[in-house]
């Protein structure tokens, strides 16, 4: 067999690999454009601010928007302080050892658990064992556990990226560890930490399976944290799956996609701030 010159194999391989990359980007673009073309015409002020009628066949999605932000917002409010504190401890207060290994192992395992298992757990633990029922707060607590590992990991990376010289300078001026952390490290790491928080908010908004089993699917407006609610993603699922209204389904999906796009752009912008600051 004649040997193929290395330059030719390289050309073939690189062409294939670039084709893979372009196919993936094309799929992403196709999904976003397809949903927006079908759904944007259905978005109006009324759609965003009115309650749904006849199971969502007519009317708007206002209660779902409120419900989504209540569940996802509360989840982030719970998970962010815990996650950031964990990251501070792992980076500033301890050496690499058994303890950090165990904590990281726990976080990594949490990150791998599928959302349906979180849903099952939230259902038996928060909704039944703790008596919270299918409610905003059950959903939020379940999601908080789910996004915790992401927040820990991103916060850790952001804190580690702060150059050691800043810490040494702070100590040199006589500050305690806590002063150094709160006045020097955290302000510098803030954009990076926020990136993780924003991406986690996006993940909470997109989540469906876990929320379905813990927050329920009530169509009415949630008035308190103990009310059941239906998030946008679940509403979209029910609309399309039960064939209630394709137009409303596309419009709801567009709202979701626009939200996720906005959050990702914001996270990207924050990340750019970090790279600029750290040089």
């Amino acid at each position: 067999m004649k040997r193929i010159p290395p330059a030719v194999t390289q050309a073939i391989a690189v062409t294939c690999l670039w084709a893979f990359t372009l196919v993936t980007l094309a799929i992403l673009l196709f999904i976003i454009v397809y949903i927006l073309i079908q759904g944007l015409p259905g978005i109006s002020w009324e759609f965003l601010t009115q309650a749904p009628e006849s199971m969502g066949r007519r009317g708007g999605i206002f209660p779902m928007i409120v419900g989504t932000f209540m569940v996802a917002g509360l989840a982030v409010l719970i998970a962010a302080p815990i996650g950031i504190a964990t990251a501070i401890y792992l980076t500033e207060y301890t050496r690499e050892g058994k303890f950090t290994f165990i904590v990281r192992f726990g976080a990594d395992c949490l990150a791998g658990i599928p959302s349906i298992i979180y849903g099952l757990f939230g259902f038996v633990f928060f909704a039944i064992a703790l008596g919270m029922g299918l409610s905003v707060v059950s959903g939020a607590l379940t999601l908080a556990l789910m996004i915790l590992p992401t927040i820990v990991r991103t916060a850790e990376e952001a804190i580690r990226a702060v150059p050691a010289a800043y810490r040494e300078a702070s100590y040199g001026l006589g500050s305690t560890r806590w002063q150094m952390v709160t006045r020097v490290v955290l302000p510098l790491a803030l954009p990076g930490i926020c990136t993780g928080v924003v991406l986690s908010l996006g993940r909470s908004i997109s989540e469906t399976a876990a929320v379905m089993l813990t927050a329920g699917s009530a169509l009415r407006m949630p008035h308190s944290l103990s009310d059941s609610t239906r998030t946008l993603a679940l509403h979209f699922y029910i609309l399309s799956r039960e064939g209630l209204s394709m137009d409303k389904a596309y419009a709801t999906a567009s709202v979701l996609i626009l939200l996720i796009l906005a959050l990702n752009l914001f996270a990207y912008w924050l990340m750019r701030q970090v790279t600029r600051r750290m040089g």
Binding site: T24, I35, L199, E207, A209, I260
Partner: peptide, 18 residues
Amino acid sequence: KPTIELLAGIPSVVYGFM
């Protein structure tokens, strides 16, 4: 790279629907 992260952000119900 951020574009791929966006792919991770799209809700799974949207993938299913597509």
